[in-house]
Computed example of a mutant assay.
Amino acid sequence: MLILVRHAHAGDKRLWPFGDVDRPLSSRGQQQAEGLARQLGGLPVTRLVTSPYRRCRQTLAPLSEVLDLEPELSALLAPDAGLDEAEEMLLDTGADGSLFCTHGELLNGLLRRWRADARVEVPAAPDTTAKGGSWIVERSGGRAVAHYLKPLRVVDLRGAEGAQAAAQ
């Protein structure tokens, strides 16, 4: 098993006055990062690998604390990284147990490729990965299947817990 994550919400890059590498998560993105830690914190993840971009590092910060793992930086996960090199890293059997945080450009390109060549079975929907969304890729018997997890914000969890408490 490996997990692919698109970084959480970071606002509009056209409105960020500095370099895109340094664009931080928005408050919505911070909530998505916390939701990601709740969604994935119980899975057998042994390694965190992230794009060096600030928003990717921040996306993994809560999960890093939960798992007590220090994220590794990889330029192969940057938005302008080559699909071939990134795919080679992700599909290597040594990637089992790893979680990779990247950008929509790279992630959606990989998913389109995998749908086209059936190297990884990827459902047709969604055709793009939402910010803060993730894909769990399970491998068994030479077959790989990807499952999508929608982004979850902690605010959504608190709202659901509050609604459940009120209903009881």
Rank of each mutant, 00 (worst) to 15 (best):
L2Q: 15
L2D: 13
H7R: 12
H7F: 00
H7W: 00
A10P: 04
D12M: 08
D12I: 11
K13E: 09
R14N: 15
W16R: 15
G19C: 08
V21T: 14
R23G: 10
L25Q: 08
S26W: 01
S26V: 10
S26G: 09
S27K: 15
S27P: 07
R28Y: 07
Q31E: 11
G35F: 04
A37R: 05
A37Y: 02
Q39V: 02
G41R: 05
G42A: 04
T46P: 10
T46N: 13
S51M: 05
Y53R: 09
R54I: 06
R54T: 12
R55G: 05
P62E: 11
D68E: 10
L69R: 04
L69F: 00
E72N: 05
A78Y: 07
P79M: 04
G82S: 01
L83G: 05
M89S: 08
M89E: 07
D96C: 09
C101N: 08
C101H: 07
L106Q: 13
N108F: 06
L110S: 03
R113H: 08
R115Y: 03
A116R: 07
A116N: 09
A116G: 09
D117P: 01
D117E: 02
E121R: 13
P123A: 07
A125M: 12
A125S: 14
P126T: 04
P126A: 06
K131Y: 04
G132P: 05
S134A: 13
W135F: 11
V137A: 14
E138L: 07
R139Y: 10
G141P: 00
G141S: 01
G142Q: 03
R143L: 00
R143D: 11
H147G: 15
H147S: 15
K150C: 12
L152V: 05
R153L: 06
V154R: 14
V155T: 14
A160M: 02
G162M: 03
A163G: 10
A163L: 03
Q168W: 15
